[in-house]
Every structure is written in C-alpha cells, then in structure tokens.
Amino acid sequence: MTLPRTKKLTLTTVAAATLLLSACGGSDEGDDTTPTPSPEAADETASEEGSGSYSAGDYSAEGSYQTPGGTQSVVVDLTLEEDGTVSAVTVEPQADGGNSEQFQTKFAGGIADKVVGVKIDDLNVSKVSGSSLTSGGFNAAVDEIKAEAAA
C-alpha cells in the first residue's frame, strides 16, 4: 500500500510542522520512532548559502503510532530546499496486517462492490480527505527530520 498523500507542499518548514502538529490532537502518540536518516542527496553547497538553520537535502524518517488496531507506522520522505521550504513530501503507510487490515478487508467486501472509485494517482487533486489516524506517526517522523536537519 503506497499512497502519495501529499505531493507538493509549498509551506515553510515551520508552518508544515505546525500544521501536522495540529492533527495530533488527542494524544502524544508516536514516541516509539525509529529514525532512518538518509540525507544522501544533501546539497552541501546550497546549505552553506542558505540562511535558515536547516540543511537542504532529501530526508527520510519512519514514525510509529498507536491505533486501536495496534501499532502502525508511516515512512515520511521530504525534500528540503536551501531557503527552508519543503518542496516534496511523500507518506507511505506501512501496512502490516492487524485489525486495520481486517477491517479494510471487511469493508471492502461490503462497499467496494458498490462503489469502486477512482485511483487517486489518476486525479488532479491537491489533498486527500478520509479517515485520519496517521498524524501522530507523521508528526513524530517529521520531528526526526527536523532534528536531523538542524544538526
């Protein structure tokens, strides 16, 4: 299951992080994060010229979060420009079975028969709205990225 939930964000890093924080409302999930730093494409030249406190480059981090269906995780990849803006973000939920998958299967049997829908990849959309529960893990993952980029 791979979902490019947000293809292009043109927010500053501070704004992006804060908006994500707003989504974690109820609890402090996502404490159990496993950072997987991979700034392989970091642009050292650009970072020297940048005025922000973060280094430009591509970053990846994984965050986990508690759901009623058990622990799940997301992998967040984002590209940080030298001016501090986030130019690309992808979120990949790491499907790993458990209750969520069971429920998706169950609902799929009842509803997918009636409503097929359209592949989101084939649509010209900026955002996706549905059931939400990836925010805690997403937020934890972005925090890892921020810490890494500020180092």
Binding site: L3, A108, I111, A112, G117, V118, G130
Partner: peptide, 9 residues
C-alpha cells in the same frame, strides 16, 4: 478517500 481503499477516491 475510499473507506476501503486509501489508494482510491
């Protein structure tokens, strides 16, 4: 988002 398939709308 399709409730049964997050890759679909």
């Amino acid at each position: 988002e399709h409730p049964a398939d997050p890759s679909r709308a």
